[in-house]
Design a protein around this nucleic acid. Structure first.
Lengths: 95, 95
DNA sequence: TGAATATATGAACATATAATCATATAATAT
DNA sequence: ATATTATATGATTATATGTTCATATATTCA
C-alpha cells in the first residue's frame, strides 16, 4: 500500500469508528429511513444526525433520495453491510 | 446490535481509522517487527510507535514477544489482515 | 403569500486523540 | 557497578472531531 492508499483507507475505516455513525449504518441496514426517523430512533437531534449523514455522504457510505420535503437515506452498497457484519462477528467471538 | 456491541464495534474499527496504526498493521502483515524497525520503516519516533502499539495491544490487535531487550510485535490473528484486505479492495474499486 | 415542516449548514464549544518531551524501566555489555 | 540500548509511560500540547445552537434553504399547505 502506498501513502495515498493508506490515507484513503483510514478515512474509510474512520466512518465505522464512531458510535453515532455505526448506529445510523446499523439502522439503515434494516430499512431505508429519513433524517427524522433516524433522529427519533437514536434519540438524538436532527442536526447531529444531519451532520453525520453529510460525513457518511462525503465517503459514499449512503445514498439519498429526496421526496417532497423528506430525504430518504440508504446504504450505498453491500460492502458496508459486509464489513459491518464481519466486524460484528469478530467482536462476538471475543465476547 | 445492542448499545454495548455498537460501542465495542466502534472501538474495534477505530483502530483502523488512523494513518499511523494502519501503517503499523500493514507493516506487520508482511513481517513480525520490533519497535525500532517499525519506527525506522515509518520514519517516526520510537515513542509515537510505542504509544500506538499500546493502543493496538489494548484492543488485542497485536501480540508481542520479548527477546532480550527487544520486543517483537505481530498481528494477533488473521481477522485483522482480512479486514484490511477487504477495505483495501473497497477503496481500489472506487479508484 | 405566509406559516409550517424537513433538512442542511456555519460557527462555537467541548472533548478526544495523537505527537512530543521528559523520564522510567529492563536487559545487556563493559 | 556503570553505561548503553530498547522499550514503555506520564504529562503536556496541538489538532481533530462531534455536538450544540442559530440560522438558512426547500417544500408543502392553508
Amino acid at each position: 500500500m502506498n501513502t495515498n492508499e493508506i490515507y484513503q483507507l483510514s478515512e474509510f475505516y474512520k466512518m465505522f469508528g464512531d458510535v453515532t455513525r455505526l448506529k445510523i449504518l446499523n439502522a439503515l441496514s434494516c430499512k431505508n429511513l429519513c433524517v427524522s426517523e433516524i433522529a427519533e430512533q437514536l434519540q438524538m437531534t436532527h442536526s447531529s444526525i444531519s451532520h453525520q449523514l453529510q460525513v457518511l455522504r462525503a465517503q459514499n457510505f449512503v445514498k439519498y433520495e429526496k421526496i417532497g420535503k423528506t430525504v430518504y437515506y440508504s446504504l450505498a452498497d453491500e460492502h458496508i453491510q459486509i464489513i459491518l457484519k464481519y466486524g460484528y462477528e469478530h467482536i462476538q467471538e471475543r465476547g
